[in-house]
């Protein structure tokens, strides 16, 4: 297969060019997703892609799987329903930092707590891109936003740590610049049985980059190149060095009972003991 054919295979016919701004990393991350799906060898019909609302969440509309473009923050409840009704299906959630960590934060921690077998691909552009650059729970402290013209005083979540604390059994972080590694991380997330978070550091040159004078699209990707450190090497840095960097790679992996499997056991028990 050629790369152009691979993209065509997983995109709905006639949907490109997409609507994302010039240099927006969302296309790089969506490309990484379909490359990972190609490597799973799974049939398109056995995959569901569910997204919330935001620039990033528009990805579901371009992709040729069973797709749901749901409501802001609510991708995980929709995905949970699909997974419970059709546990054999591979369910992938596409979400933004606002979608997953702000309005959808409660759904996020509870899906993680249940360890339901979903793969969450979170496009982290540090802002509400679609609505013009308001700060999100993943906007770094002191960054400017349309709702924080002098810089935000909020501290951002470390979402991988939050997911781990809530009970997720897989958490990874990649970046658009390190796109081939991101493909590997998404593939590992899909293969992992249980709740998997793959945070993809994105770049929004328009709603976030401009306000923060981060330069053009290539400059924002170069920033990722220069500030991402493989997780093992990151652990060896001192606090001062860590402050300027972020770890990429698999950050957490564990074994725990998976929700739909446990639920199937309850159904079997209810059938037996209920006499049906």
């Amino acid at each position: 297969m050629f790369m152009e054919q691979l993209i065509e295979k997983y995109f709905r016919p006639g949907r490109l060019p997409h609507i994302w701004c010039p240099g927006c990393a969302n296309g790089i991350i969506t490309g990484a997703l379909v490359k990972a799906i190609y490597r799973t060898g799974l049939d398109k019909d056995n995959i569901a892609v569910v997204s919330g609302i935001g620039c990033s969440s528009r990805a579901s509309g371009y992709l040729d799987f069973n797709t749901v473009h749901s409501a802001h923050g609510r991708a995980l409840p929709f995905a949970t329903g699909i997974k419970l009704a059709a546990p054999q299906m591979t369910v992938i959630v596409i979400t933004g930092d606002g979608d997953a960590a702000a309005i959808g934060g409660n759904h996020f921690i509870h899906a993680a707590r249940r360890n339901i077998d979903l793969t969450v691909l979170l496009y982290n552009n540090n802002t509400y891109g679609m609505t013009g650059g308001q700060y999100s729970p993943l906007t770094p402290t002191n960054s400017k936003a349309s709702t924080a013209p002098y810089g935000t005083v909020d501290r951002p979540f470390d979402l991988a740590a939050l997911a781990r604390g809530a009970g997720a059994t897989f958490a990874a972080r990649g970046s658009a610049f390190h796109a081939p590694m991101l493909v590997d991380l998404i593939l590992s997330g899909i293969r992992h049985k249980g709740f998997s978070l793959v945070e993809a550091v994105a770049s929004c040159p328009i709603s976030y980059g401009r306000q923060n004078k981060l330069g053009d699209a290539p400059a924002m990707l170069k920033w990722q190149r220069d500030h991402a450190v493989p997780a093992a090497a990151y652990e060896k840095l001192n606090d001062e060095q860590k402050a300027d960097k972020f770890p990429i790679g698999v950050l957490h992996q564990a074994d725990a009972p998976e929700y739909t499997e446990e639920y199937a056991k309850i159904i079997a028990r209810a059938r037996k003991e209920g006499g049906h």
């Binding site: 297969m1 050629f2 790369m3 152009e4 691979l6 993209i7 995109f11 490109l16 060019p17 997409h18 994302w20 240099g23 927006c24 990393a25 969302n26 296309g27 790089i28 490309g31 190609y38 490597r39 799973t40 060898g41 658009a176 610049f177 796109a179 081939p180 699209a217 990707l221």
Partner: peptide
């Protein structure tokens, strides 16, 4: 493939096959 890998718009491709999974 550095260009192909990071083009956000699927506008540039290398016309050589990718490995089968």
């Amino acid at each position: 493939r550095q260009c192909e890998t990071r083009c956000p718009d699927f506008a540039i491709f290398i016309t050589e096959p990718v490995p089968t999974p």
